[in-house]
Nucleic acid binder design. Sequence first.
DNA 1: ATGAAAGCGCTAACAA
DNA 2: TTGTTAGCGCTTTCAT
Lengths: 359, 359
Amino acid sequence: MNSPRRVTLQDIATSVGLSVNTVSRALAGKSAVSEETRAMIKAEADRLGYVPNTMARSLVLGQAMTIGVVITNPSNPFYSRMISAIEQRGSTLGYSVLLVVSEENHANELRAVESMRRWGVDGALVVPVQPEVDHWRRLVAAGTELVLVNRDLPELDCDLVGIDYERGAYQATLHLLDSGVERMYLLEEDLAISTVGARMAGFDRALTERGVPAESVRVLRVPTRRRAANTLPWEPAEAYELAQRLVADVPPRSGILVGNDYFALGVYRALTEAGRRVGEDVSVVGFGDHPFSAYLDPGLSSVRLPAEQVGTAAVDQLVARIGRRGSGAPRTRISFPGELVVRGSSNHRQSTAADPGSR
Amino acid sequence: MNSPRRVTLQDIATSVGLSVNTVSRALAGKSAVSEETRAMIKAEADRLGYVPNTMARSLVLGQAMTIGVVITNPSNPFYSRMISAIEQRGSTLGYSVLLVVSEENHANELRAVESMRRWGVDGALVVPVQPEVDHWRRLVAAGTELVLVNRDLPELDCDLVGIDYERGAYQATLHLLDSGVERMYLLEEDLAISTVGARMAGFDRALTERGVPAESVRVLRVPTRRRAANTLPWEPAEAYELAQRLVADVPPRSGILVGNDYFALGVYRALTEAGRRVGEDVSVVGFGDHPFSAYLDPGLSSVRLPAEQVGTAAVDQLVARIGRRGSGAPRTRISFPGELVVRGSSNHRQSTAADPGSR
DNA sequence: ATGAAAGCGCTAACAA
DNA sequence: TTGTTAGCGCTTTCAT
């Protein structure tokens, strides 16, 4: 009933009548062991069910073989897909993943830093909550390699792997204007993060380029207060309420760009309830191409974000950093393009819904 | 530039001119230290920026202070919410989370077991992929406490924390029949997992209870093959294709119960394209109450699943087990009820959409 | 090719 | 109250 003590190198050594050292080298595939002894030792290790103790190994080697992952909100499909990719890529490279969820909460980030330091993780992949950087600096100062993911922290001098939101927003805005939109709205998250700024910049650039007058443009921030402990920070409900108030103002030939597809849900409902038809007199484009977006009616045009690529590249970047520990290599910034997927919500010319197979 | 070596107990000891042991006890809050020395040591620890080395601590204590979490697919909102809850609850109780993502893939589960054993995690929270249990047995035999989450493994004698899907399906089916449905369809995942079986059982129970003739009932399995590496295992696309073929057959006053809300997306589209109106001549009810479900048009009725409660309870159960290590306490099974949320998709009597605020 | 010894950073038993 | 010793399981000198 009671679980037997874990098998150690010592157990194997005793069993085969050799020293711990030899067993260690045999199992590690080092050279200085005769092939027959090695085979013998391996067989015995198997027989006893030996599993190396990572903690002991890490302690002596001084490397944890672990990367810390600090995510704000796994319920965001973008992050959940990223987590999968990170974990898979990490394990391929021999790293385990220590996960901390910040829930957009600073206190949890402090907790994360604490945890990373205690474990002595080799590096951390971080989606930061706030512009504040002190705690991250502390982590870096302690010798942990840090790679920011998706959100940038200008004050922090370290690698970033993310998305080119500026360009994504630029293209999406152009697309809306090209499809005949005359008035533009931008609904954005009310968070002080780089992604929002980038999208706003791209939005502005497109408008300027096309000479859209300022009075035809409105930027609105969707409150991100939480309704309850278990709700998403980006509630469609918030966008819905905001859009409800907006709807009366929104003339035909309007375009609404929203910072994430959840917001589009609220906008759809507000418009539908007001008797407006999305994709006909009002166009909507979102960000993220969430799993549901292709299946809304009409299908939601959205900027698809390559979450897996970001996750994989982030791990690669981090592991590369770990490899050349504290070499002071200049910081790298990788950004992947989003891909605008056009569907019925912004397709004035053709009124049919987009092919769902296209997602 | 180069990161300084980590501060150890030894460093503090040298600095204050005491032994490592005293420093250890002072910092651990043990009794046998005078209050002034303790204060002095603590101050020095702070000054030097001491952070305890968890690995060293775990190695000597023989407990990893870590729980392994094996999840099939974080992109499922149910699991992503659960992951958050698990991580938060775990950290409250002093446990870190080592995450492995199986992606519904057996090979990844084997990898997970390997990883858990190497790290010597104190316990693991597992959403199993397959009925096969050998590898889990191995993990348990190695002394790791195991709690199954959401999906049961009848052959494995260990704790389970999940959802009462049988009852959820039973109630959802009764609800459909009560709203005037005469023909019933069940679209289920094509996976050999307990949740599917439970929902089918609940479905059958309701039908039997109401005396619905067998010829008025059809159960269909939605293929779960993956279209590409980055797609969800539960593609709305699969449900869509299946529903397309089904639509011609589906008479008015039909009810469709689907195993998860993603499937409902495909069903909605198929019905809409065929000119059928969801919630009028065909009712649909899903499972999971995903974030988008309240915002579909009409709102999707769905059985809400308390993911956070499941996650929290699972951690509590696991930690309790860890506390009474190998005491051979009989296995526990906790299941939380789902809550049917009725919206426009199954509300024949009232044709208006449900209040979106209700989610 | 193999073994002995030392030590990673920490805690626990036992002395003093 | 404090210090000494030993050891968690492993790897890495340095001998042999």
